[in-house]
């Protein structure tokens, strides 16, 4: 039944993609990486919403994690003579050639959510989040929350060696560097997954006197925090009270945990990268205003005070 629905949905989507709204005053091609995570699905949904609200005709191409497909999509956008191209690049290198072609055709290219290794005159601007800043916001929240009290933090890192894991760790450490009372006592990878988050938290709790010595948990993403919250509960402690929980991403499930008082704060990695991109494009098209080469999206902090249930309702249909 579900499969059938998905297939019908996919067919309908394919139908939508081929129709072109004649009234649109701007046609934009969007080469998306794929749908490997809930966040990316939400980014796709929001990009389509933003385009519809602004009356932009969006041509969407899903590259299924292949650069080859993205390059093909960009060439086809150039051939169709779109007004601009949004590109969420799957890898950092190998774009020079196709971006030259876009430049020759005088089509501005905006990078979404990731950057590339190419001369910066090949694209108009890049809209990305600052991963270090995200970690910083999380650390700042914890520092404000605990004040002068002694606080032992355990950290659930993302996949070892991935840039979010490195940068989110760095940002958090920067934020707590001036606070001698806050110390990271254990740090281990949870691979960005719930299962590993739970398993690693279980071992943290065992290693730190049944969890009595832990004051806060910092997780590099919400999924690991959700897993860890269950481990804390099973150890007989109250997540959110006995152990503060702060994480990054702002996926819907963490808002449910916040509404239940089991998580304290999350920093949003906004899936709305297209909004600022369209703003920049509209200005550029209107009077040729060159946007800065890097547009940083807001890393908004959500806490229990921000009506988490309402945010959950807003977010749950975005495709996370």
């Amino acid at each position: 039944m579900r499969i059938l629905k998905t297939l019908v949905g996919a067919a309908a989507l394919a139908g939508l993609m081929t129709t072109t709204a004649l009234a649109a005053d701007m046609t934009v091609g969007f080469s998306q990486i794929g749908s490997e995570s809930g966040w990316r699905a939400a980014e796709t949904t929001l990009t389509k919403q933003q385009a519809e609200e602004r009356g932009i005709d969006l041509k969407f191409a899903d590259a299924q994690q292949k650069q080859e497909n993205q390059i093909k999509a960009i060439r086809s956008f150039i051939a169709q003579g779109v007004d601009a191209i949004l590109l969420a690049p799957v890898v950092a290198t190998g774009w020079d050639q196709v971006l030259e072609e876009a430049k020759e055709a005088e089509i501005p290219v905006v990078l979404l959510d990731r950057t590339i290794d190419a001369p910066d005159d090949l694209y108009l601007t890049a809209v990305t989040s600052d991963l270090v800043h995200e970690g910083n916001v999380a650390g700042q929240w914890l520092a404000d929350k605990v004040g002068d009290e002694q606080c032992n933090v355990v950290e659930l890192q993302g996949t070892t060696g991935s840039s979010p894991a490195i940068d989110r760790k760095k940002g958090f450490e920067q934020a707590i560097a001036d606070h001698d009372n806050i110390k990271i006592v254990r740090s281990q990878t949870g691979d960005f997954t719930r299962t590993k988050g739970k398993e690693v938290m279980e071992s943290f709790l065992k290693a730190e006197n049944g969890g009595k010595d832990i004051c806060a948990l910092y997780a590099h993403n919400d999924d690991m925090a959700v897993g860890a919250i269950q481990a804390i509960k099973e150890a007989g402690l109250k997540p959110g009270e006995d152990i503060l929980v702060v994480s990054i991403d702002a996926v819907p499930d963490i808002f449910q945990a916040m509404a239940n008082g089991e998580a304290n704060a999350t920093v949003e990695l906004t899936p709305n990268m297209a909004g600022p991109a369209f703003d920049a494009l509209e200005k550029y098209k209107a009077d040729g205003t060159e946007p800065p080469k890097w547009i940083q999206t807001e890393s908004k902090l959500y806490t229990q005070a921000d009506d988490p249930m309402k945010v959950y309702e807003e977010k749950k249909n975005l495709g996370y």
Partner: peptide
């Protein structure tokens, strides 16, 4: 067991 443990089915990682 893996799904019940985290109260969710994670098709990518289970």
């Amino acid at each position: 067991i893996a799904a019940a443990d985290i109260r969710g089915a994670d098709a990518n990682n289970a």
